[in-house]
Amino acid sequence: MARPVLQVDNLTVEFPTRRGTLRAVDDISFRIDAGEVLGVVGESGAGKSMTGTAVIGLLEPPGRISGGRVQLEGARIDHLPHDQMRRLRGQRIGMIFQDPLTSLNPLYTIGFHLTETIRTHTDRGEAEARARAIELLTEVGIPAPAQRIDQYPHHFSGGMRQRVVIALALCAEPRLVIADEPTTALDVSIQAQIIQLLKRLCREHGTSVLLITHDMGVIAETADRVAVMYAGRIVEVGPVREVVQNAKHPYTEGLMDAIPKIGGRTEDLAQIRGTMPRLSQIPAGCAFHPRCPRAFDRCRQERPELLDAGASRAACWLHAGEPAGAGTGRGGGERG
């Protein structure tokens, strides 16, 4: 099997607080292959953004990786010194955040952002970098790039800014792009444009993507595989079609049913009772059991690991009857 671009094993992120240590990401494992788009979906507080920031080493103290490994193309990156990690970001991992304005400095022109990034990560000279910047702007669909390159971020609309951020992320031809809610701040018609752009560019450049979003629609359109997170854990992972249409975990099922769909019935929506637990009050056993319509005794006592469930894997005792598989989701029950 080819070496994955990103492999995460038993990653745990903790926040020490006055009232005890909170575990925001709890022992999760996943891999992303070359050219693959892995969607990470979940509601607020599920730990999806925390997973992304842990992978690129941007956790805000006192948050820290307290266990597990992150490997980029076979080399560990979770314990790299600060300056090496800095070089790696941008060069081998590109980043796209929700709000393009936070990624762009309002005092610099678009061209400065791009040429500086290109010159930091490649050995191109000034003129070459500028030519490359114009090329990139053309590629992300900015009209009249030769003129617009000398404008400032406030001259650009929200959708155009996000295009610039995508160009910035791709400057150094990274192997992996981490996109955290890249379309959430945009209008629907612009959102569709940005999704298509991101998909096309990653296909053309062979870039892998870790796509973090709360929007199942965006996942369904973009991802190859999906990991569904709940209360810091991956509860289900599998091919996108399988997860969206044939969910194996009761939480994923509930989530899919709660989404209003055009053309569906317009009576009451299915709803998941209750709310996601706070990090300080995660129930014993399966974290979802107090809200789960199909919970039984074992769910209250024992925490399920990812088990084979058809083409997907789900952390749910309902699938315990099937032969357990080995692989990325193994073990990890050694909870402190």
């Binding site: 609309s157 959708g159 155009m160 629907v188 018609s189 612009i190 959102q191 569709a192 444009q193 999704i195 298509q196 929007d215 199942m216 629609g217 965006v218 369904a220 359109e221 996108v240 079609r241 969206v244 249409q245 899919m256 989404i259 769909k261 055009i262």
Partner: peptide
């Protein structure tokens, strides 16, 4: 155009006509 732009959860593989402009 707005209806076209909604992400397709049914994954019917329906070809979407991208709408240009802002």
């Amino acid at each position: 155009m707005l209806l076209e732009a909604i992400p397709d959860l049914e994954m019917s593989g329906r070809a979407r006509t991208p709408v240009g402009g802002e």
